[in-house]
Design a protein around this nucleic acid. Structure first.
Lengths: 196, 196
DNA sequence: ACCTGAACACCGTTCAAGT
DNA sequence: ACCTGAACACCGTTCAAGT
């Protein structure tokens, strides 16, 4: 029916991810969704890893484009936009974790974050550490959000100390994200001032 | 030859991980290493996920036992010991990420970390957030360490801005870890004082 | 009690062959 | 140029059958 091309494959991949998650995504299920045979996909994409990179690049591009429209965006802004775009695709944080990080748009985001930290006063020798840490914070946070949104409450252990971890206080996930981001940014600030 | 039991399987799994990594670990390769057929493994363990949990529990137990011997261990100590034990098994951070977190020893570690943060003055409503963040920091850090130790330098892009990211400044990975941990702990401190 | 042969229902990927 | 049938070399898991 529909002509098969990379954007179509990309779109179907995202739909499949949002329906059943990364573990259910195979070249065969993807082909079935597109009413095509698995082998056909290989005419348009090199392999499955390529497909994963395509997704991480799409997310990175969306984040990058949104940031272009904002003047003087700091890491607070970057982190919030990144989280929003990651949340649009189920398991996208895991995809970021398993793919090679230095693809075009993702590299630009890294450069951007690094320049933001440089502006905060972080010295060169610690820049990549801080950049990685900021990146990992956002990825892990959204990964946890998506994980606990899927794990049914019953599977949570009932004998936890004072019910502390039940739904991982995802009651106010937005506040919790801001709180964590504050911790990170305040910590960076302290270290910058210490160095002076 | 050797009698097959859970500890033997556990040991072989760790050796296989340290030789070829998680992606190369299959029930069949594991069986081959033990001079046994894949089906035999299922007499001793429920399934592959069970095996992954076994590994995460082993690491957690080692961390827990070491912490028991230290009086007044704070999160600095916990994080350092956790990193050391994670580093002993290739891809163990990824195993932590894909397995259910509330297993016996791992739960104890979580409780321990939470009580450490409580002692620092973190209030109940933010405890799990801070606990998750500390946990994610250590896991992501070791994951990155192991990742960049395996990716050959040639695969790194040559056109990065000022060579900033080349070996991800893994020149002094220990200092970088301390720096990141300082950021986190200092940030927590700031937020605690803010709340007062 | 412990192990295996054989099978089932999947994978990712390749490639000659079709249109 | 684009798609497919068929195959290859793998997976995790089950289970009747063997000892």
């Amino acid at each position: 029916m529909m002509k098969l091309d990379r954007p179509t494959i990309q779109q179907a991949t995202i739909e499949l991810l949002n329906e059943d998650g990364l573990d259910a995504l195979s070249m065969r299920t993807l082909a079935k969704k597109l009413d095509v045979k698995a082998a056909s996909l290989y005419f348009h994409i090199k392999n499955k890893n390529d497909l994963m990179v395509l997704i991480s690049e799409l997310v990175s591009e969306r984040v990058y484009e949104r940031l272009q429209k904002i003047d003087d965006a700091d890491f607070y802004v970057l982190a919030h936009i990144m989280r929003e775009e990651l949340k649009r695709i189920q398991d996208s944080p895991r995809i970021f974790e398993i793919t090679f990080p230095f693809t075009p748009f993702r590299s630009r985001l890294i450069e951007l974050a690094l320049s933001q930290f440089r502006d905060m006063g972080v010295d060169e020798s610690h820049l990549t550490m801080v950049g990685n840490m900021g990146n990992n914070f956002v990825l892990s946070y959204v990964s946890d959000e998506q994980y606990f949104a899927r794990v049914p409450d019953q599977k949570m252990p009932a004998n936890l100390p004072e019910q502390l971890l039940s739904p991982i206080d995802m009651a106010n996930p937005d506040d919790a994200f801001d709180y964590g981001l504050d911790i990170f940014m305040a910590g960076v600030d302290v270290k910058v001032k210490q160095a002076k």
